[in-house]
Each structure stands twice: as C-alpha cells, then as structure tokens.
Write a protein that binds this DNA or RNA. Structure first.
Lengths: 180, 180
DNA sequence: ATATCATATGCAAATAATTGCATAAAACAA
DNA sequence: TTGTTTTATGCAATTATTTGCATATGATAT
C-alpha cells in the first residue's frame, strides 16, 4: 500500500492539509499517484494513528479549521525504510484508450471529438506543469535544490504529456473529418 | 468499473482465454489497463453471468482444459452503449516515482541503480511493442485494418516508453557516479 | 535429473478505492 | 443576487483489487 508512502514523500518536502495533498496529487507535483480527497483524509487519519504524521489544527476566522500535517521522525524512518525495498510495478487505467481501442464502433466524428477533448485535458496538465516549472526555476538556490528530485519527476510528466499531444495530432490527421 | 469494458474491447478484436487476456493486459496490446489473472478470471465469470461473454471449453490432451471466451451480441451492445458515455479520468500509480521524489534519502548509487533497473523494464516493454508492431505491419491488408485502432493505442504506448527512456538517460547524466 | 518458467484456472480473505452523502463559508462569476 | 467554484473535512456503504493459497502439465534451462 504505497499511498501512505506517497503522502509521506509529499509531506516530507512541504507540510500541508489533506485538501492541499489532494490537489498536489491531482494536478501538480504529485501526479505520479491518483487519489481522491476521501482517500487522502482516511490515509492521513491512519498515518496519524500509526504516529507517522502529526498536525496542528489552525483555526480560521469564520471558516472551518484546517489541519496542517507534517512527517514525524518515526514517519521519516518508515519512509527511508520503504525506499530500501524493491519497487512495486506501476499500475495504469486509461478508460479513454478503451474507447480508442474499440473505436471502430464509434463514428469518425465522435472519435475525433473524444480525441480533441482528451488532448485539451493533457494540454491543461502540461500548462500546469509549465507554470510550476517557472515557479521552481525562480526560487532561491537553496529552495531550488530542495525541489530538484520532485522537479525531475515532473519533467517526466512533461515528456509524457508532450507524447500525448503529439499522438493526438497524429490521430486527428489520420482520421478524416467528415462533412455535415 | 471499466475493466469489464476493457475485456469486452479486447475480446471483440480477438477471442481468447483468461490467461491470454491477462498477458495482453500486462505486456502487450492491452497495456492501457493493469490487471492480475485473478481479477481477469473473476470478471470473466461475472461477464458470463451477465450474458455479455460466452465460451467454449477446449479439452487439451493431458493438460487442463481451457475456456475460450468471445463477446455475445448483448455484450457488444453493452460495449457500444458504454462507448457513448463520457470517459472517466485516467488513474496512475507509479511507486518508482515516489522513490525518485524522495530520493534525497537514498545514496546516489542506489538512485542510479533504481533508475537503471526501471529503464531496463521500459526498454523491455518498448521491445515487446516493437515486435508486435512488426507482426501487425506484416499482416494481410484486411487483418491490418482490424488492428488499426488497437495499434494506434500501442503507438501512444511506444511514445510514452520512449519518453521514459529519454528521461532515464537524462537522469543518469544528472546524477554523478560515485567512485567506490 | 532437477528446477524454473509458461500455460491454464480459480477460491477466499483482506485491503484499497469509489460513490454517495453531509457540512460550511469565502471568493468569484453571471 | 444567485449560482458555481474553491477551500476544507469527513463518514458509511459498496465495489474493486490485492495477496495468499491451491492445482496441474509441458517446455525450457542448468
């Protein structure tokens, strides 16, 4: 169950709330793992019980209070020991590619539309990465160093997003546009 | 739950056993979905109960018999109706990238070793795709047409594998090799 | 000769993840 | 001013997935 270690890794770089972790997992530096907010909150509670994270509850005027989590020394030990273990295989699920695979049962117009839609999503992801990259590149030297390896994982993400965009272009060139 | 539709899509192109589907999911044309053999067998049983697939049990001399599954007309209707629905978001889990992200807690030698190992796996995947590509390209025209869109999904896979390999190279150039 | 790998199927228990619900307020857009 | 998005947290029920076990034979490697 590596989501706990994904959370420990993210919190080890920057402390944050459950909500914050969820956004990092979804559009940002943590996109090597997909996770919903429900799952993140549940795992944080469980990590806290195990003593691997702790939090400060921050009262906000009017707003509901938030919990800022950080890794404990025991949590860091756990992360380090996990890092020594063999890596588990990657897992992917691309419902969009099922559609392409079985695309002979769709009209060309529908196929094109799905590809355009999907391409736009990958464009957004790449744009988000590019913004983050600019933010990192303008950090003072010390901070920049801290983000060196997280940034490296994002560079892979950028390459992959570019691959999706290229592929989308090629697909659209390949599928003739029908007249109405 | 799209794994059922992933199975329907694979069987719609070529009928096959549970074992066969599992191998397609893992190293081949079906790599847009990760699935274990246990899960595939369970889903096949469930798909059969729903009447979306059926099978012939083929006795093999000495060997245990195998079940060759194919999509039923009802199953094809289900697949077609699923194709009309909006696509669910992709999901990924890359334990390897957690390691890179938190790699400041590893020695440079260990980091390099993990990257080399990971890179070799992606090289194998790319090689498997390349072989399959050659097989497809040498098919007679009619068969080639049948695989056009499945092959398209594999082309994306090839781009993504190439991205991993490039990234691995860059990472290894970036992480100094320590003397013993 | 012996061991491991590939083929082939599946159950049962445990764990992980999704879906639906519930609450609350600020910020922003129409 | 009314609706939507963003911030912020979480429970409960259901569904999906993993892990461990169990079996069996042929092919290939050492």
């Amino acid at each position: 169950m590596s989501i706990k270690h994904a959370i420990l890794a993210l919190l080890d770089i920057d402390q944050g709330t459950g909500y914050d972790l969820m956004t990092r997992f979804n559009n940002s530096i943590g996109s090597f793992w997909s996770a919903s907010h429900q799952q993140v909150y549940k795992e944080l509670a469980s990590l806290a019980t195990e003593g691997w994270v702790e939090f400060d509850e921050v009262e906000q005027a009017g707003k509901p209070s938030k919990k800022i989590y950080r890794v404990t020394p025991a949590g860091l030990d756990e992360l380090k020991s996990w890092l020594q273990k063999p890596v588990k295989p990657l897992k992917v699920k691309y419902p969009f590619l099922i559609k392409i695979f079985a695309g002979d049962h769709l009209s060309k117009a529908q196929l094109r539309q799905d590809i355009i839609q999907n391409s736009a999503e990958h464009r957004e992801t790449l744009d988000a990465y590019t913004k983050l990259e600019q933010w990192i590149l303008h950090l003072p030297e010390k901070e920049k160093k801290k983000y060196h390896l997280p940034y490296a994982t994002m560079k892979l993400g950028m390459k992959v997003e570019q691959a999706w965009l290229e592929w989308s272009e090629e697909m659209l060139n390949d599928i003739p546009q029908e007249r109405e």
